[in-house]
Every structure is written in structure tokens, then in C-alpha cells.
Design a protein around this nucleic acid. Structure first.
Lengths: 261, 261
DNA sequence: CAAAAATTTTGATCCTTGTCAACGACAAGG
DNA sequence: CCTTGTCGTTGACAAGGATCAAAATTTTTG
């Protein structure tokens, strides 16, 4: 019934400008104000909410945005704090989690390149976001972005679509959390991760796992020990192979059967 | 590890016009085409996405909408079927659930008056909606509605806000499912229901529960037996009183402590 | 490169919750 | 009125996963 609360508390940086701010176009290292955005050069242009924008809208976005980098383990923003920015993860991976007062933790998701941060446009952050790897975020002022979407219906529509998609994923995760065994949870998680990588890179049986077993446990409503045991068992049964920083899926069919909706 | 799959299969009616279609303005009983909407007369105008509309937008909505009634236990729409309509629940309560192939079920939410159905605007229904009580829905063609919001930014904004809110609720529910004990789950459920009724009627310690213990269990990731035992225990400890079709909260402070975010 | 810290794995044991079974209350319907 | 079905409750028992403890492994850091 416990879940680590004593994680190494890295300071919150998103919204306080302590992160190394750097422009993509001119790679100046220190200056706190960072350079302008260069969407033409963006890695996730095809996957993010930007995919549906026209040149006019890109220009408007570039005007209010900038790129920010976070080292691994940095806190990008923190549950309960004012939400100064929203943004798009352009590289790296984040852990999104909610903390209970007694230290139990629920990971509500992992953000991957192309994911939008701050979909709810809420004044306060509803969860904490920590960098699992070095991460880059294309960041906008929340208020500015909120005003912009009122003038750019296509952008608002893209945001609505993204929110709907997230809602659907959240409901699927409810099924996983509420009605699946430990083994099924792990299978669903691995297949889910594979599918997300497939959208970014190609389909592959090699699934990198930038998060710890504890993170996986907190995502699936299990303890570290159970996660470890189940993965070891799957490896013993030749369903997967555990490799440094990830797994390789041997019996995808079996995993998909276990994860079946 | 099981969850009733053999529920009395009432036919799906939403999108097939078997429900009694009736206009609010002219109460004609049978005609399949139902009368026009009269938003001025709507009970949930203040709670629903309509709250932010101007007269022009109301008129546009009235043009594509109609009111439909469902008897208790009717299926409003079914997981996997084409989503012909979206709509607003104006009275009654619905159970929204996802079914696993082996019969296990996860209730992803309960719809109350003012709630929007079909937020995702997806072509296919991602879950099944069943009436827990007689229910009325203010219904729009999905495609028509989807086109309308592109012309009425305020309506789209309202929808985005609603989707964001749902997403936040879904993430809260993940914490409940993944990281709370049976007792805490029940407490969170009761406090949650109380808060939802408070939005509609006033705040009250009397909380009607139109759903069965099985529904509650499938919502919280518990069995009927555990739900029953926990509620009986709470009643024995004078935290609640079980009354016909609901509960009365005696020790709200204790429940809130248990449900604490 | 060695020491310290974090993470992962494994084992033993416990306990919360699930499973199985049965009963009573109640409502619907013949 | 009796039957049938649904729902809620209770009890006995089992088990999946949690907890506690510690070793093995990997990563970080001085």
C-alpha cells in the first residue's frame, strides 16, 4: 500500500525559467529569453497538434513560442502550481503523475514526442511532469495560447481532437487498472508502448523503457516487486527478452491476446 | 475475476429510432421524426455546454436537435457501433461501461443531467451507455454537430472545456482505481456522487444511488460483495445510513478524509 | 576506479480482496 | 398467490498481489 514519495526532489523549472532556454535556429547557450521558434525545423511537426496548421497559423504560433530543454530527472511542472505554460514535447519522455497526501503515487501517463502538455488549459497543474530522459519542449504562454485558439479555429479543433484522444486513452487505462490481472497489465503496457513508438519511429519488437519498474508499477497500480516478477516470468517463458533500458518482444501474439481490449 | 456479462440485453435504440421520440414543445407521442427543440424550456441549460451560447447559436442548435426519451434499462448506444448521434442528457442517469471480450466490465462513468454524450465526436462508440432511470436526451446528428462547431467557435470552446473536464475526472479516477483501498474507493465514490448532485440540486447529505452495487463495483474495480461489505461496515460505524435507493452521509468529514486527493 | 546510491530481483510471509455458496427481501408477472 | 428473477447481504475459504527483508546488479559520483 505504499509508493515512493521520497524521490530526489529536483526543482521545478517549467514556468520559472531555470531551464536552459535555447533557440533551435540560433543555438545560443545561456540567454534567459531564448530565441524564436523555427517550426519548419521541428521534429514532431507531423505528429503534434501542429500537423493541421496552415502557414498563417504557424507564424502566429512561432510568435508566442520558444524551445526549452530539461535535463533527465528535472521536474517540468508540478501538481498544484500555477500553469504558466503549455507546450509540445519535441524530444525525450516525461512521467506524468499524481501524488496522494500520504505519498502513494499514480502515474497517469507518459508523454512522448509530439504529445501536448497542458491540454486542459487549466490555471493549475493537475499533475507533476518529470523528465525521464533529457527533454525538449516547444513552449507557449498558457494565456497567450488560450487566446490564440479562439482566433484560430483549426488550432482549437486540433486541441479538441487531442483532448478527445487523451480521454479515450484514459478510459482504456481505467479498464486496465480496474479489471485486469498483473500479467495482463504488464502485457497491455508493453503493447501500448510498442504502439506509441510505432507512431514515431517504425514498428519494432524493440521497446525502449525509459521509466523505472517503480514508475511502471505506479502506472499500472502494482508494486515494483510484482512488476519485476511478472517481467521476469515473461522472460522465463520466452514471451519477452529483458535488455538494457527496455525489452524485446518475442511473442507479440501472446502479449496482444493478454492485452486484448 | 469475473463481472457480469449476462445483463438483460435491451436493444440499442439511440441511432435506430426505436425510442419514443417526443418534442418538448408539442408533446406528440408516436411520430418517428419528433418535434423541434425548445432550448428556452430546457432544464439543464445552465449546466450543459449550452450555457455559453448566444441566441444565434441556440437557434443553430435547435435546428439540428431533437429530444428523445429512453425507459429505464434501455441501451442508449453500444460500444463498437457507429455513432450516429451526440447529445446532452437532460434528465435521468446513464451508466457508461466498457466490456472486455471475456465478460469483465469496467464502468467508466455515470452520466448525469447536463452531461454531454459523445464528447470525442468519434465515428464509433467507445463504450456502451445504458439508462439507469428513465432518461431524456437532447440529441444531435454527430456529423451535423461536428460541422456546426467549426462555425461556432464558442460552442467548440465549450466542448473543449467539457472534454478537458472529463479528462481531469478520468485521471482522478485512475488514482482511485490504481492506488486506493476498497474503503477509500467507496468513500471517494460517495463524495463524488454528492458533489455531482450538489451541482444540479443543492448540497445535501442525501445521495441517491440509481445504480446497483454491481455497477458501483465495476466502476471502482471491486466485486459486488466487497462493495456490499464496505457499505455495511460504514453503516455499522455510523459513517453513512443506507436508505432505499441511496445513502445518507452522517460523517462527511470522515468520508472526505478517506477520499482525500 | 572505487565507493555510494539507486534499481532490480528473489524469497518468505501476510492480508486484503476475490471466489463460491447460500439466503432473505423485494418486484414483476403469470 | 405463487413463481421467478434481481438485488443485496453474509459467511467460509482461497489466492493474487502486497509487504518485509535482503541480495544482486547497475548507475552515479567523488
Amino acid at each position: 500500500m505504499e509508493s515512493l514519495a521520497e524521490k530526489t526532489m529536483t526543482d521545478t523549472v517549467f514556468g520559472r525559467m531555470e531551464a536552459s532556454v535555447r533557440s533551435l535556429s540560433c543555438a545560443s547557450q545561456k540567454p534567459p529569453q531564448g530565441g524564436a521558434l523555427d517550426c519548419a525545423d521541428c521534429d514532431v511537426r507531423g505528429q503534434s497538434i501542429c500537423q493541421a496548421l496552415d502557414p498563417d497559423e504557424f507564424e502566429a504560433l512561432e510568435k508566442i513560442g520558444r524551445t526549452v530543454s530539461f535535463p533527465s530527472k528535472a521536474t517540468v511542472f508540478e501538481q498544484g502550481r500555477d500553469a504558466v505554460h503549455v507546450g509540445n514535447l519535441t524530444s525525450g519522455a516525461l512521467r506524468l503523475s499524481k501524488l496522494l497526501p500520504d505519498g502513494r503515487r499514480q502515474v497517469v501517463g507518459f508523454a512522448m514526442p509530439g504529445d501536448f502538455l497542458g491540454l486542459a488549459l487549466a490555471k493549475t497543474h493537475m499533475f507533476t511532469a518529470d523528465a525521464l530522459t533529457p527533454a525538449k519542449i516547444c513552449q507557449f504562454s498558457r494565456v497567450g495560447f488560450s487566446e490564440l485558439i479562439d482566433e484560430k479555429p483549426r488550432l482549437m479543433r486540433a486541441l479538441l481532437e487531442a483532448a478527445s484522444h487523451e480521454l479515450t486513452l484514459a478510459q482504456d487505462q481505467m479498464v486496465v487498472l480496474g479489471r485486469r490481472t498483473a500479467e495482463e497489465k504488464i502485457a497491455a503496457f508493453l503493447i501500448g508502448m510498442r504502439n506509441r513508438y510505432a507512431r514515431i519511429h517504425g514498428a519494432s519488437v524493440h521497446v525502449p523503457l525509459p521509466m523505472t519498474r517503480l514508475d511502471i508499477g505506479d502506472y499500472l497500480g502494482l508494486t515494483v516487486e510484482t512488476v519485476s516478477r511478472m517481467m521476469t516470468r515473461m522472460a522465463r517463458e520466452k514471451t519477452i527478452v529483458i535488455v538494457p533500458d527496455g525489452v524485446r518482444l518475442l511473442d507479440v501474439a501472446r502479449l496482444e491476446r493478454l492485452a486484448e481490449v
